[in-house]
């Protein structure tokens, strides 16, 4: 299971249970309001509590919540466990663009190009204020901080173009701080890497 699938599974698990709970609560609430309306049910019963029921509806949600915690944590581990053969790219965030620096010192602004079939580790930092690197397609996000290195990784499994956005508010052109991730075949990547940087 790739990290993306792990995170998506967690989404389905949590959202699925949530929808069922929401539907249940709402349906019961509406049913009570209609069934026990004053014109039909003029005298209310005097029920004040029911310990068994209350214990039950404390314990069961606790178990559900703990299972959600586990699923969420487990999917996070996938986002943190970088494979040993991952390719390293340094990412420098600045107001308001992304700089990608490869191991051969090639620099690329606002365009991250990687070969298909490789794991890519992004070593993120900032030269000024906080930024945050977000690649929605790979469910990764990590803050870029001046002086404190952070990282994220993804497995470039399909050729294509993906969006990179800044998700930590960084000033007037925050929303323009977007870049492209291009996943290309190995040969094309090598040719691109050998090109002179700008």
């Amino acid at each position: 299971m790739t990290p993306v699938q792990g995170v998506d599974l967690a989404f389905w698990y949590i959202l699925g249970i949530s929808v069922v709970l929401l539907f249940g609560i709402t349906a019961v609430m509406v049913y009570f309001v209609v069934r026990f309306r004053r014109s039909r049910h003029p005298v209310a019963s005097d029920i004040r509590d029911n310990y068994k029921l209350e214990i039950l509806w404390t314990i069961i949600p606790t178990l559900i919540a703990l299972s959600m915690f586990y699923v969420g944590w487990h999917s996070y581990l996938g986002l943190r466990a970088v494979p040993d053969d991952a390719m390293n790219v340094a990412v420098e965030a600045q107001m308001f663009s992304w700089l990608f620096i490869y191991e051969n010192d090639k620099e690329s602004e606002n365009e991250l190009v990687v070969p298909v079939g490789r794991a890519v580790k992004l070593n993120v930092s900032s030269v000024d204020v906080l930024h945050s690197l977000f690649i929605a397609a790979f469910r990764i996000k990590v803050d870029a901080i001046k002086g404190i290195p952070t990282y994220a990784w993804f497995y470039a499994d399909k050729v294509g173009e993906y969006d990179i956005q800044c998700t930590e508010y960084c000033g007037v052109n925050h929303s323009a701080m977007v870049a492209k991730l291009r996943i290309v075949p190995q040969e094309e990547f090598e040719a691109w890497l050998a090109e002179d940087g700008n």
Binding site: V7, A10, F11, I14, S18, S75, K141, E168
Partner: peptide, 18 residues
């Protein structure tokens, strides 16, 4: 309930600050 999505770590990474 949407808070549960944000409390869980893996899912929060995706939707944090969105």
């Amino acid at each position: 309930l949407t808070g549960l999505v944000l409390g869980a770590v893996g899912t929060d990474i995706h939707v944090h600050d969105t």
